[in-house]
Simulated scan of single mutants.
Amino acid sequence: MIWSAELRRAVRSGRAVVLLGLYSMFSALVLLVVGWLTAQVRNVVLQQLANADADTTANATARINEEMRKGVLGIFTSNDSALVEALAQVPLEVLIVFKITLFFLPAYIALMGFDQISGEVGPRSIRYLTVRARRSSVLLGKFLTQASLLLGLVLIIDLAIFVYARIANPDFGFAAMGLNLLKFWLAAIVYSLAYVALTTLCSCLFRVPAVSLVFNFILMFVFWLLSTIGQAPGNTDSSLRFLRYVSPSHYAGDLLHPGLAQFGTSGAAYAGFAFVFLMAAYGILRARDL
């Protein structure tokens, strides 16, 4: 009941429109910049081959495009041959935009739900809920509301990106578009689970929503720092490399992997992080004087 009531209120509020506009503008900006850079590279290649005969130009252009594609895929997939093959049909614009937006998605999630609990704990309006429902129900209802709203917003943006990619790349068929849209959307949702739960935890810690937001950003920076230190080339033989395993972002690389074991490991990691954060949030909310 709390989930459905909060979701209806969130959908009718102006915040959902603002969040959709913010996410769409950022994604559109990244997509336009990536598309422009890709077009510039292709134009440079064509200009360099302009003096060659038509057959040679066509073959060389295709070969250069393929090598450039493999190079970019190698960077984003850590040269995993199975993952490179699975993403062979996906336009580079989609891959680059997905990776960039995935990096900023935790911040977007924090802006979306930083006041989901603290916004009612501060003015003590949450007491009207807790006298009629268990605190665990209130917590889970708030969490599911943000997760459901995020699910819809990400689907809208991903659909727009794939439609653009379909128009810009005629060889990107509808079957491949539909299948990869589902894969990318599912990967983004699994990735978001831990960060939605983290936002819920931060919102339970403080009575002031602004403090919850700032603390949420601090924790995200700490997780990013741990992942960066753990993945640094100089730490391959050091005990510091184990720091990456305590950061949710470390497990994002296999969310698009065709192997069930690799995807399952990443999915289980994000589910585990979400469970730990939600249990911590419940413990705090249960002990708090409302």
Rank of each mutant, 00 (worst) to 15 (best):
L226D: 02
L7R: 04
A176E: 10
Q262W: 05
L73K: 00
F103S: 14
D158F: 12
R69D: 04
R15H: 10
V90F: 00
I117R: 01
D53T: 08
A10N: 08
S78G: 12
T145V: 07
P248L: 08
D171H: 12
G253W: 08
F26H: 10
A50S: 11
L193P: 00
F221A: 13
A261G: 08
A280H: 06
L19S: 08
K142M: 06
G272M: 03
R132E: 04
L278I: 08
V11D: 04
K70T: 11
A197P: 00
F242Q: 10
A28S: 12
I229S: 05
Q89C: 14
F162L: 10
A133R: 13
L144W: 03
S137M: 10
S27M: 14
A252Y: 05
A232I: 05
Y23A: 15
F217V: 07
T101F: 13
L153A: 13
Y245S: 07
E93D: 11
Q47I: 15
S118L: 03
V196R: 02
T200R: 05
A274N: 01
G14A: 09
Y164D: 07
I117P: 00
L198W: 02
A110P: 00
V84R: 05
A232Y: 06
L46H: 14
A16P: 02
L150A: 05
G178E: 06
S249N: 10
A147M: 08
L255F: 02
F104A: 14
R42Y: 12
I161V: 15
G283C: 12
Q40V: 15
E85V: 05
T145F: 03
G74N: 01
W3E: 03
M68C: 10
T200Y: 04
I157K: 04
Y282L: 15
Y191F: 10
A147Y: 03
L260K: 12
I157V: 15
Y195P: 01
R244H: 09
I117E: 00
L149G: 04
T61W: 07
D237N: 14
S148G: 04
A62T: 11
S203T: 04
G21A: 13
L20N: 05
L219Q: 06
S249A: 15
F277L: 11
L256E: 00
N216I: 06
W224K: 14
S136I: 09
L181R: 01
V44G: 12
A280D: 06
T265M: 15
R124M: 11
N216F: 09
L46Q: 12
R244E: 09
F174G: 14
I100K: 05
R244D: 06
R132Y: 03
G119P: 00
A82P: 00
L144Q: 02
K70P: 01
L226A: 12
L181Y: 03
D115M: 07
L201F: 11
L205W: 06
A16T: 13
L92I: 03
S192C: 06
T56N: 15
R166G: 06
